[in-house]
Design a binder for these strands. Structure first.
Lengths: 142, 142
DNA sequence: CAGTATCCCGACAGATACTG
DNA sequence: CAGTATCTGTCGGGATACTG
């Protein structure tokens, strides 16, 4: 299994960062952590992730284009996610009052900022997916 | 709003990375993306995230210690998440057949590897949470 | 074209009680 | 102590039909 080497030092660094972020993690309520959870909730959803990635790939997409790209998503969910993502500032919605109406979606700079984090995470996941899937298979055989 | 500057060049780089990761994203089925989704599904869950962070902070925790730290989690869900995380290789479970029985959980090196990504993401989220929350508040007033 | 409005269903979380 | 077992409710997603 081809793991990046994790040194004792790196573990200490992680612990320190956690401490710095949350103070003492001994807290009874997760309210200190929850704002971050709130932020991530919108954006870590499986459909939102795909929407953001497609908009990172194609700079501008219309509603029905997105619906085709994000294969399997329903009208309702696509509409909901787009509203949330727009509301949180990840993307911009532009409406052209033509007939028939045309609406275009694109990432804001903030959306692009998140996209970069998302890509980092996806690169990590892709690097280790075989590792995880074989672990999983082994553990299920027992 | 205090955003990191996103250059046109960075947007192009993101698009290229996406292209490299997934080939042409025009695919009808998301199967190419789904293995990564599978990987992330276990680990991006709200409870799993907290479990991993607590185990990054406290090197070793027992079942009931975790249950206190991860405030609000039920026996059932904690037990399920621990099994999944162990099965995927993020943490190690050690049982001491004493009376009463003692079981200890700790992150594997792989778990620490993921923890680092998680911390990066959390740092990002913390940096921009005011931004997101004010965006959200503004958009809801309309 | 770009969405709403409904209805329906199943997965999954929470609570509680129990056990090796 | 470290978990199962069970039941129950809800919440969110899918499908479909409709509208400005």
């Amino acid at each position: 299994m081809d793991l990046e080497t994790i040194t004792v030092n790196q573990k200490v660094i992680s612990a320190k960062k956690l401490k710095k972020m949350f103070g003492h993690l001994d807290l009874r309520d997760a309210d200190l952590i929850c704002p971050i959870r709130d932020v991530m909730a919108t954006v870590s959803d499986k459909w939102s992730t795909l929407i953001i990635m497609y908009l990172g790939y194609y700079p501008v997409l219309r509603f029905n284009e997105l619906k085709k790209k994000v294969y399997g998503i329903s009208n309702k969910v696509l509409s909901e996610r787009l509203k949330q993502l727009e509301g949180d500032g990840y993307l911009k919605r532009t409406m052209y009052p033509e007939v028939p109406i045309r609406v275009e979606y694109e990432l804001t700079d903030f959306g692009h900022s998140y996209l970069q984090r998302l890509i980092e995470l996806t690169e990590w996941a892709q690097k280790y997916k075989e590792c995880v899937l074989s672990n999983r298979a082994n553990s299920q055989r027992k």
